[in-house]
Structures are given as structure tokens and as C-alpha cells.
Amino acid sequence: MRAYIIRRILLLIPTLLGITMVVFLTIQSIPGDPIEAYLGEFYEEDVATALRSHYGLDRPIHVQYVLWLGRLVRGDWGKEVLSGLPVLDQILEHLPVSLELILGAMIVALMVAIPAGIISSVRPYTPSDYTAMTGAMVGISTPEFFGGIMLVLFFSLGLGVFPVQGYKPWSAGAGEHLSHMALPILTLGLTRGAILTRLVRGCMLEVIGQDYVNTARSKGAVEFVVILRHAFKNALIPVVTVMGLQVGFLVGGTIIVETIFSVPGLGQYGINAISSRDYPAVMGFILVSSSIFVLANLTVDVLYAYLNPRIRYEN
């Protein structure tokens, strides 16, 4: 198991290297550069030239990439061209907020999906199943921004339960913090939950009909126990395998949700960096976002290998 994990971690390196290389090369083809964004409307060309040379932006692109990579390895992620602030500090400041969104959304998704999926699968083709499946289908078909707007209309403008937008740090009090995070997390979590609900139901249906479940039943086990101990445990494996994929969608979703709810997370940071062509910041943002996704996939694979030992030896 350990060898498997180590091999998988080593495999991450070429993937991340590939990602950074592709991004570094392509981002230069975006029109406009950070110096122009930095100087705004009022500057002379020689000032821009001097600044470009100061930041090394006038060197050949592969040289820039190697230099960037060398610094990255040493823990220097560069400085934002616009603000002069260290990129790593900025990312570390914005990252926890997004991670909280992703984690919270995951929890909400599971809290919705597991009970709904189980209930649907235990009584398939009944009104409760149809209700759950219709709800899930609608959830899957709702774009995050539209879901967010509907939640705002209902919970904030209608009921006045949660604030419309904004962010309060934990230091402002847990209640304040969580009430501001509630709608963004719900928006993300319900969409993901809809997808997982269908998956849980499908996997449960497959398992419930199988022999060992029937055996457990015939041995006189209580239905509730059969469902949870035998059926659900086995249905969980395929659910786990898609979690990595879901994290990928959540990373994308945070960009939209942070925009709608004005949450200062990594997505907002990244969008701002992209629109101001702040290369060091864009690189940091893409590296971290992809890493979250790649690491989530790794975790899922390891977990899957753990649940399903055959995998480890095949390779």
C-alpha cells in the first residue's frame, strides 16, 4: 500500500509540471500584460519598458518559465506585479475560504445524497422515489449562478434568514461567519448533492438485489441493518470514486459562487488576477486550483485502492 501511494505521489509531479508549462506558455498569448494593467491609463512607453525589464518580462518565454520554476521550488512564488505583494501570502490568505466552501459543499452534498439516495433505492418507483429523483434531476440541471440567485430570492430577500452576500471571518464570531457562508455552501452543495443522490440510488439498487444482501436478510437481520451494514457499505465504493471528480466541479463552482456572494476566496483572486494579467498571481492560482483537484483525485484513488485491494497489485 505504501509503495502504491508513493508511486502515485511521484506521478503527480509530471502532471503538475505539465499543467504549469501549458498555462505559462498559453497565458502569454492573452492580449495585454501586467505592466499595462499596472500603469493604467497614464504612462510613457519608456516607463513600461523599464518596468518590464525590472520584472523580467522582456526575456524569452522559456527562460521566464525556468526561472519561475526555479524560484517556485525554493518557495518563492514571486510577487504580484500590480501590488508588489508576495503571491504565496495572498494565496494562503484566500485559499482557506475556498477550501471551506468546497468542504462545506461536500458535506451538504453527502448529507442530502445519502439519505435521499437510500430512501429512493429502498422504495423504488414509489412517490418518495419519484420526488427525490425529480428533485435531483432539477438540481443537476440548474446552473450554479441561477441556483444561487433563487436561494437569495427565497432565503435572504424573502425570509430574511441569511445575509444576501458578503463575508465575515471566523474572528467576527462563528455565527456571523457561518450565516454568511450558508448560502454559498448550499448553492454548491445542493447541485453536487443532486448528482450524488442519483449515484447513491443507482449503486444501492444494484447491490440490494445481490445474493449476499438477500442472504443477510434471510438470516433474519433487521432490514435497517441490512441496508446500512451490507448494502450501503458496498454501494459506497462507486460513490467514493466520483468524489474526486466532484471536487473538480466544486473548484470551478467556487469561481461562480464567490462572484455572486462576494466571498473573498481563491476563485475571486484568480478571476481578478486573470483580468489584470498578473502572471505570477495567475500562475499561483492555476497551480493551486489544479493541485486541489489532482490531490482530491489522488486521495480518492488511494481510498479506492484501500477499499478494493486488487487495484494495487495490478500495477
Partner: peptide, 18 residues
């Protein structure tokens, strides 16, 4: 000062007294 990029959010926050 609170940074809110979206105009609707600014309006909503004002309406809510935030």
C-alpha cells in the same frame, strides 16, 4: 470599506443595513 465587485450585492447589503 468593504470590497464588493457586484453592484447588486452592494445594493442588497445596503438594503439589509449591513
Amino acid at each position: 470599506f468593504y470590497f464588493m465587485a457586484d453592484a447588486n450585492q452592494r445594493m442588497n447589503a445596503l438594503a439589509a443595513g449591513e
